[in-house]
């Protein structure tokens, strides 16, 4: 019995905490007045974790997240580049097809033809009506030797008549030539004249230069209505 009591008391003694034994540290708990930092500091003091380690790991996570984010951005841009390059290649292939190449050539040729016609038409001086109109301004007593016209409106006229007065009258005829109340000739000058007598007949050879106002309605004027020959 004694032995059993002894064993029981020892067992009870080992289970109980002697009053002289050091008590384990109570778990610190944050009170209402203490800050979270104090709590973390206390935790760190007890070796449960370190603040610097936590910050390092947070930084690592943020850095890795940023890297992954940039990687996704880059992947997206790469994919975008591939898509657009593919679209461009398709469009270029379409343009380079024989159908479109021929079409482009035809369009360029047409445009060139239009440009040529446009430019040439602006400087063109339509003479189909002007030459008869001009010839209608030759006085009856004048024999034309040559009559030249160029597309700038310059007229050179050489002929023969019976007197100086007739040569001057020819200049006057040109100066007085009007279509729709508008003078056709802006300048007309008697460049030269010379008199000769053959078999008692006087003849005066002369040359006139004149400038025609191309803005007058030369192409629509009636030939008979403008005949000014004397």
């Amino acid at each position: 019995m004694d032995l059993e009591k002894t064993l029981d008391s020892q067992a009870a003694g080992s289970a109980s905490i002697p009053s002289s034994a050091p008590a384990p540290a109570p778990a610190p708990r944050p009170s209402g007045g203490n800050s979270g930092d104090d709590y973390l500091t206390e935790m760190a003091d007890h070796g449960e974790f370190s603040i610097s380690g936590l910050l390092l790991w947070l930084s690592a996570i943020i850095a890795i997240s940023a890297t992954v984010f940039f990687w996704f951005l880059n992947s997206s841009a790469t994919q975008d580049l591939a898509d657009k390059t593919s679209q461009k290649d398709d469009a270029v292939a379409e343009i380079s097809s024989p159908t479109y190449a021929a079409l482009e050539t035809r369009a360029n040729q047409f445009q060139s033809a239009v440009n040529q016609l446009s430019t040439a038409s602006k400087s063109r001086f339509s003479m189909d009506n002007f030459l008869p109109l001009l010839y209608g301004q030759v006085n009856k007593n004048v024999v034309v030797t040559t009559l030249s016209v160029d597309d700038t409106g310059k007229v050179s006229f050489s002929g023969t008549t019976d007197s100086y007065k007739s040569a001057a009258q020819q200049v006057a005829t040109l100066k007085n030539w009007k279509i729709d109340e508008k003078n056709v000739v802006t300048t007309a000058t008697l460049d030269s004249e010379s008199e000769s007598v053959e078999s008692g007949v006087v003849s005066v050879t002369f040359s006139i230069s004149a400038t025609v106002d191309k803005t007058t309605a030369l192409s629509t004027a009636s030939v008979s209505a403008t005949e000014g020959g004397i």
Binding site: F125, T145, S148, V149, D151
Partner: peptide, 12 residues
């Protein structure tokens, strides 16, 4: 066919 007359000289 487009022709533009640049100059014409008439001699009877």
């Amino acid at each position: 066919k487009f022709f533009a007359i640049k100059s014409a000289t008439i001699a009877p």
